[in-house]
């Protein structure tokens, strides 16, 4: 926790409509959008440059696995959860071992998962 400071969430999702929805929910929860990324490179760059407290991570970005992002997040000890239309067991390591939210998601569950990122 960062005390009184705003919690900044990075949304990594290549589907624009979903990314938009996720941003709205993040703001509803009371957190701030630390950035949005639709590709692996973009996400890794934002992790380098921006001040991020938690990440919503789509498992598949324009056909590429986001496993490398998960690795980077683990290395930084940043909280995140994986969002995917695939079954969790179909995902490669380390995505399949991370907290998981299946698409299409339930609003309340999404809200509680996002809230957890700030704890």
């Amino acid at each position: 926790m960062k005390g009184n400071e705003q919690i900044r969430i990075l949304v990594v999702e290549d589907e624009p409509a979903i990314a938009a929805d996720l941003c709205f929910v993040v703001e509803e929860v009371g957190y701030e959008i630390g950035g949005t990324a639709s590709s692996v490179d973009e996400a890794l760059k934002l992790l380098e440059d921006a001040d991020i407290d938690g990440v919503i991570l789509d498992a598949n970005l324009r056909g590429a696995s986001s496993a490398s992002i998960a690795d980077a997040l683990k290395a930084r000890n940043l909280p995140f959860f994986v969002l995917s239309g695939y079954l969790q067991r179909q995902l490669p390591e380390p995505l399949c071992g991370a907290p998981f939210l299946a698409k299409p998601y339930d609003q309340d569950e999404l809200t509680s998962r996002i809230r957890d990122l700030g704890r």
Partner: peptide, 24 residues
């Protein structure tokens, strides 16, 4: 099959987001 399942779920998510955002 994997892809279609993925896309279907994605699409449902999109629909859901569109609905929520439109309703807002």
């Amino acid at each position: 099959l994997r892809e279609v399942t993925h896309r279907a779920k994605n699409l449902l998510t999109v629909v859901r987001a569109v609905a929520r955002q439109t309703a807002r």
